[in-house]
Simulated scan of single mutants.
Amino acid sequence: MTAPSGTGTASAPHPQGHRPPQGFGEALARLASVQKSNKGAPAYSRFVNRKLGRVLAALSYVAGLTPNQVTAISATFTFTGIALIALVDPAPWLGAAVCLALVIGYAFDAADGQLARLRGGGSRSGEYLDHMVDSAKISSLHLAVLVSWYRFGDLDGAAPLLIPLGFTVVAAVMFFGMILKDLLARAHRAATGAPPPAPAPASTLRSLLVIPTDYGMLCVAFLLIGFPSVFVPLYGLFFAGNLLFLPAASVKWFREVGSLDAA
């Protein structure tokens, strides 16, 4: 599963000589010039979530919120959706509520990092908070599915319960690998003075091919949680996509980290 799109978030002053944006429109326009690279981003995260996050970041800026407060809002929506999955018997209305909560939470997750960049940069404590929230939600989301299927699901035996169990492991390992790879690369650049790599062009085809690993699309899939005959196999397909992606991504990341040793 692709990691959520927020990044380090604690507040920082505007760079010296740069006038703070005035109002929502100027803040939104300024955000367009401080976007992260779209390389490797899945389709929903790239074409939908980051744009939603940009609007929410501009609104948060006008409202005087700090990036850490935006992270807290994201966590509130996300964990409300996760609690609903675990505690409420699946029904069509529940799918709409869970999907809305997770989608809004993910959009605010994209907003905290954008707000930090708009305010002049993030901080280590903000990045720590953001990643701790991300790691908690990535695992607890699938454990909530496990609880829901165990409590309410009319499943053919216990074997389907292995799907959310496996998804929990795969999602946690993938998130940790992604974060660790980036952390090691940043530490290497700090130690050697090497410049960050130039942004590579983003491939629309790749964004579409990695949709099974897209956390945003998984959030949307929960719209169908009230229809188990559809949701269970769909959730299984997401798990299969992530299970196949993880070994290939791990090899690629290992080689990237190995190139730092060679350098």
Results as ranks from 00 to 15, higher is better:
1 M>F: 03
4 P>C: 11
4 P>R: 12
6 G>P: 01
6 G>W: 02
9 T>N: 10
9 T>I: 01
10 A>E: 13
10 A>W: 11
14 H>C: 08
15 P>F: 02
18 H>T: 11
19 R>K: 05
25 G>I: 06
25 G>D: 12
31 L>R: 03
39 K>R: 13
40 G>L: 05
41 A>M: 14
41 A>H: 14
44 Y>V: 01
44 Y>Q: 06
44 Y>P: 14
45 S>R: 07
49 N>I: 05
50 R>P: 03
51 K>F: 07
52 L>H: 12
59 L>P: 07
60 S>W: 01
61 Y>Q: 09
62 V>I: 12
62 V>A: 13
62 V>W: 03
64 G>E: 04
65 L>S: 11
70 V>T: 06
70 V>F: 05
71 T>A: 01
71 T>G: 04
73 I>S: 07
75 A>K: 11
80 T>G: 06
80 T>I: 06
80 T>K: 07
84 L>A: 07
93 W>D: 15
93 W>A: 15
94 L>K: 08
94 L>M: 08
94 L>A: 02
94 L>S: 07
98 V>L: 01
98 V>E: 07
99 C>Q: 09
101 A>N: 02
101 A>P: 07
102 L>I: 09
106 Y>R: 11
107 A>F: 10
111 A>T: 01
124 R>P: 07
125 S>C: 12
128 Y>M: 15
135 S>G: 13
137 K>W: 03
138 I>K: 03
139 S>T: 15
140 S>F: 01
140 S>G: 06
142 H>A: 09
142 H>L: 05
146 L>D: 12
146 L>F: 13
147 V>N: 08
147 V>M: 12
149 W>S: 10
150 Y>H: 13
155 L>I: 03
156 D>I: 06
157 G>P: 09
161 L>M: 06
162 L>V: 08
164 P>E: 02
164 P>T: 01
164 P>H: 04
165 L>D: 01
168 T>F: 03
173 V>Y: 00
174 M>I: 00
175 F>R: 08
177 G>S: 14
180 L>G: 13
180 L>Q: 15
180 L>S: 13
180 L>D: 15
180 L>C: 10
181 K>I: 03
184 L>T: 12
186 R>H: 07
187 A>M: 04
189 R>S: 05
193 G>N: 05
194 A>Q: 13
197 P>H: 08
198 A>F: 07
204 T>M: 14
204 T>C: 09
204 T>P: 12
208 L>E: 14
209 L>Q: 15
212 P>V: 04
213 T>W: 05
214 D>I: 00
218 L>Y: 02
220 V>A: 14
222 F>M: 08
222 F>C: 04
223 L>F: 10
223 L>Q: 04
225 I>S: 08
228 P>W: 04
229 S>G: 14
230 V>T: 14
231 F>M: 09
233 P>M: 00
235 Y>R: 03
240 A>V: 14
240 A>M: 09
241 G>M: 13
242 N>M: 15
242 N>F: 04
245 F>W: 10
246 L>T: 14
247 P>S: 09
249 A>Q: 15
250 S>N: 10
251 V>P: 08
253 W>D: 12
254 F>G: 13
256 E>L: 06
258 G>T: 04
259 S>W: 09
260 L>P: 01
260 L>C: 02
